[in-house]
């Protein structure tokens, strides 16, 4: 099995040059222009917080919310890391837009045959042994591509080497069950627009707690309903029989069985 790939994004190294977005746009054939937010034409964007730049993009979660909610399996997670989208399957229910904890998928609202668009984690490049376009474009090493396990060790090493420089947390290591995008930051992540309410449990588990009860509802419910039907039906039969017996006493009838 291919080792899980990831990218380590060290916010302290990012100078805001936007080369990652340019590289991404070139790779994906998107119109070149500086964009500040994720959009149909920007699969990655730099959000500025004082003197820090935070790179937004699909996090390629280990247990992706979007993959779990898609009713037709148009979104899939590959072993190497990328979460891929198949517009031919998509029915356009937009549950992925609603559910993604990072607000990543963008929808082609103006099209009559819309798809979603988001960062693909350059699966073709990864398959060829190349690094994603954004990581290749990054001049400062703020975005580093590699095996997830190795990057986690490296990130922990960077924190240990310069504890004053970083907050002691690798965002994405365990958040929502772990993601392919790992962030290091000099300031608490909550100040940089990272949602602190998400927790470490993968979001799909919230749904599974309800969905896992479906087989029980069906089996127990089915037996229960059939049982109630049988009992109430039997009671009606007995009542009918008893009343016919009573009638039989006053007026002898032939239906003695």
């Amino acid at each position: 099995m291919t080792p899980k790939k990831a990218m380590l994004i060290d916010l302290s190294l990012c100078v805001g040059c936007n080369a990652c977005q340019a590289g991404c746009k070139e790779e994906n054939g998107l119109p070149p222009s500086d964009e500040k937010y994720l959009s149909l034409t920007a699969y990655t964007a730099l959000n500025k917080y004082n003197d820090l730049y935070v790179r937004r993009m699909c996090q390629h979660c280990d247990v992706p919310t979007c993959v779990s909610v898609c009713p037709v399996g148009a979104l899939t997670k590959s072993g190497a890391g990328p979460v891929s989208y198949d517009g031919e399957k998509c029915i356009g229910c937009r549950y992925c837009l609603q559910a993604c904890p990072f607000h990543v998928p963008k929808y082609e609202w103006s099209s009559t045959k819309p798809s979603i668009r988001k960062c693909k984690f350059c699966p073709n490049r990864i398959a060829k042994g190349l690094q994603p376009a954004c990581a290749e474009a990054c001049p400062t090493g703020a975005t580093k591509f590699g095996d997830r396990d190795e990057l986690l060790i490296e990130a922990a090493g960077r924190i240990k080497a310069e504890p004053g420089k970083y907050v002691s947390r690798i965002y994405g290591e365990q958040d929502v069950g772990g993601t392919s995008m790992l962030y290091l930051s000099p300031v608490p992540f909550e100040q940089l627009g990272f949602d602190s309410r998400l927790g470490k449990i993968p979001m799909p588990m919230l749904t599974m707690s309800a969905l896992s009860k479906v087989p029980n509802v069906v089996s127990v419910g089915g037996v229960l309903l059939a049982g109630i039907w049988w009992i109430t039906n039997r009671r009606a039969e007995v009542q009918a029989h008893e009343s016919s017996l009573k009638k039989g006493k006053t007026q002898p009838q032939e239906d003695d069985e």
């Binding site: 779990s68 898609c70 009713p71 037709v72 399957k89 029915i91 549950y95 749904t207 969905l211």
Partner: peptide, 12 residues
């Protein structure tokens, strides 16, 4: 599509 493409993890 939901008729032929299933995702049992999806409430939808």
């Amino acid at each position: 599509h939901p008729l032929v493409m299933w995702n049992p993890h999806s409430v939808m």
